[in-house]
Design a protein around this nucleic acid. Structure first.
Lengths: 190, 190
DNA sequence: TAAGATTTGGTGCAACCGTACCAATATAGG
DNA sequence: CCTATATTGGTACGGTTGCACCAAATCTTA
């Protein structure tokens, strides 16, 4: 057997270049040649490790999501052994806001893929799984499991995400708005 | 003077082709040649009426927004002479949901422009004006003018928009969620 | 060491891109 | 009718795109 290479690492290195380009100029900027230049590798290497451009964009998205979930899980775990439901919920929601460069880039890239999410079947399936379980989780963390409030809370958070990405909303204000909603939802019942 | 042509009509006809392509495949599908074919006019005509491709995309967005505002104003006006604040607010919020093909396409196209909104200065300015006044309006329509609730209500609505566009949420459910929030916000104070 | 599969490098091609350019055409005023 | 000008048509060009293809290089195992 010949020389072995860490495929995962190479793919991640290339994917990171895709993310940077897609975040700054949309998917149309993520051409094979441009990505190769951004990653500092010959264009041929992208062919070898991903195949077609379509496969490259799909693979880059897959890695992005994997990284994002890992990061999110880490931050929730950092809350300690037996965290309050409210703190867990707050942490989950804040994961959707671009509060650091990592999250900002991730959400930006997601926006770049958005139109394709709706028209291309391969991508459609890839996101139709996650959301329901996420809304279940939020509903469970809420007192009395109020489903309507859980759904709107998540919708509101993603809405704030969009406003932040557009530079229309500062982080402090977004967090404040979420905390006010949490205040209300976790208020003692009269 | 030679033959005169209704410029506005021609531009709108071409812009509609841009919308259709951008809604189905993103901005990268809206090439000059493709738009021309979609509109059924020679490519040269796009040059004449819009200039460069950048100008075309900008102009198409401008017309889209103009149409959208007109449609929205119409629907609010249809509420009658002295509508209840709650009905006005509900109507404004529902304008953000893709409840018919017109709105669906409009929001879809906006998503296609999203990444550019953030990176290109020419587009940045074009949207930084509207939002504050919209949030003011919502806050005014709310009892006691609760600014925090107004802001989160708008964010939640745009969040629901995204979920609907992705096919994760049905229209009835989205409207129900909004109505539940309105129930709460317009509930008589104890 | 020999072998053979894995990994690279570079290049070529057909298709498409945006747009500049030049003629031809059509029509409203004189 | 005639002419000036708004409008259209078609094309050509330099550049980029995705990808297929062929050789060379590299390293592990037998």
């Amino acid at each position: 057997m010949p020389r072995q290479v860490d495929h995962e690492a190479r793919r991640r290195h290339i994917a990171a270049a895709v993310w940077r380009l897609a975040a700054s100029g949309g998917l149309e900027d993520a051409t094979i040649r441009r990505v190769a230049a951004e990653a500092g590798v010959p264009a041929r290497q992208l062919q070898y490790y991903f195949g077609t451009r379509e496969d490259l964009l799909l693979g880059a998205l897959e890695l992005l999501n994997r990284d994002g979930e890992a990061e999110a899980r880490e931050r929730v775990a950092a809350l300690g052994q037996e965290p309050e439901p409210r703190d867990v919920l707050r942490s989950v929601l804040l994961e959707f806001l671009p509060l650091d460069e990592s999250r900002r880039q991730r959400h930006l890239v997601h926006m770049a893929y958005f139109v394709r999410f709706m028209t291309e079947d391969a991508l459609r399936d890839r996101i139709r799984d996650a959301p329901p379980e996420l809304e279940d989780l939020i509903a469970m963390l809420l007192p009395e499991g109020r489903r309507d409030e859980a759904d709107f809370l998540l919708a509101g958070t993603t809405g704030l995400q969009g406003q932040m990405l557009l530079g229309q909303l500062r982080a402090e204000r977004a967090i404040e708005l979420i905390d006010r909603q949490l205040d209300r939802l976790f208020a003692p019942v009269d």
